[in-house]
Write a protein that binds this DNA or RNA. Structure first.
Lengths: 229, 229
DNA sequence: CGCTCCTACTTTGTACACAACTTCGGAGGT
DNA sequence: ACCTCCGAAGTTGTGTACAAAGTAGGAGCG
């Protein structure tokens, strides 16, 4: 659990989220064990944790495969995220234990990448943005962070901020700043409203880019394993 | 994963929820392995799953112990449950794919135990009630059931319907019936409202019985391992 | 030609042995 | 008397071997 297993988990986790492991592809224990140069034992533990995260599905005596999410499921997750993160923002504002300085620092670091043309800038923004939201989750209560992890990671799969236009980025960062203001004011209603609109905007953007990304490839009409569910 | 591990997981899960394993007590792999007559390997897998459920906490090189939940944390979980189950009820009503016949059957079976004096009746009602709520969760979307499991199981620890008075039971069952009506009507607002009041009532009952159970024992002021968190 | 059954292979599930880490106790020094 | 350091006991982490289950391919039969 502590060292080898953690490393395998973290690496597989990243591979799945960045698209190195395609949804539907199988994960064989031995193959992964060889790749990382470890035995199957820590690999198994890592796979169980990924399964608990909802990122892969374990089938008895058959192995694991990366979960495929239909568009409807992602829509549902956006709704849940809106609900739970709105709640987290409200609670964080009311309890007043949120680390405002840290949030402002994260805002500044994200804004510093506004005119950054380096392709890796999107990854960095994604990381900072995740940390920004997580900070609010933690301030919202004890049970919220774990719950939100399951809801957020999935729609984030294969999606980073490189799909955002400069204008969308600017608006998104502006909402972050307003969120910090609402939290600083201790106004739960305000914080929840900003968070909800922030996430609705993200969903709208996702819908737009999804349509653009879908048509060219043309691999959607098949729905290989989804139809039997 | 399939046979031995599942059995160990299910048994430990039940032991924790029924109070056989007290919060704060440690779980040693070897002891559990001997008790069940299996090796440590499936025991480890079961412990990881319980950890993912939020029922136990794993400490590297030290072992696992049953999670202690403070009263404030349980309050928070009731809030989240209210939020998510209300959402589930709304969605279930709007989508109209809920199995109304099954819900009515579960209602009838619960009501049949209203005048049952058998002490095991409370366990049966708890089981039926859980199934009633789960049916609605499933009708509310794909991601909701797993999410709600984590939120609901914890406050249910060591608590069954034997603490309910006959009047509380009757009111609770009446709310179930009204919920079915709201779902049948496809009225999302109605369904959500009924669900939320149903759960708020449950929380009020929990608060009352908690105060009664707390004072006699007098073991609360110590807070053994909680103070360091 | 198609269907069924059987065998061989692939992959996961469990047991067991050893290594690594943490913790607690006592001996020694200041 | 107290603090520090060292060592032994106990518990988890990892590696490896074997058992069990599932899957796919081909041979035999209808």
């Amino acid at each position: 659990m502590t060292q080898t297993s953690d490393r395998v988990y973290a690496d597989l986790h990243r591979e799945i989220l960045t698209g190195g492991r395609v949804p539907g592809s199988r994960l064989r224990e031995e193959e992964i064990a060889e790749t990382f140069g470890v035995s199957r034992t820590p690999v198994r533990e890592a796979l169980r944790r990924l399964s608990a995260d909802g990122l892969i599905e374990l089938i008895p005596h058959r192995g694991a495969e990366v979960v495929r999410w239909a568009a409807d499921d992602i829509e549902e997750l956006f709704d849940l995220r809106c609900l739970l993160e709105g709640h987290a923002a409200r609670r964080a504002a009311q309890r007043g234990e949120v680390d405002l300085e840290r949030l402002r620092e994260l805002c500044a670091r994200m804004e510093a990448h506004l005119d950054d043309t380096d392709p890796r800038a999107a990854d960095e923004i994604t990381r900072l943005n995740m940390e920004f939201h997580r900070t609010i989750h933690r301030a919202g209560g004890r049970a919220l962070p774990d719950l939100l992890t399951r809801v957020i990671e999935v729609p984030v799969v294969r999606r980073t901020f490189d799909e955002y236009s400069a204008e969308e980025l600017r608006r998104s960062f502006g909402q972050h700043r307003e969120l910090v203001n609402a939290l600083a004011a201790g106004d739960g209603d305000w914080a929840e409203a900003v968070m909800r609109s922030h996430l609705r905007a993200a969903r709208a953007s996702w819908r737009t880019h999804r349509r653009q990304a879908e048509l060219p490839t043309g691999q959607e009409p098949r729905t290989p394993e989804t139809d039997k569910d």
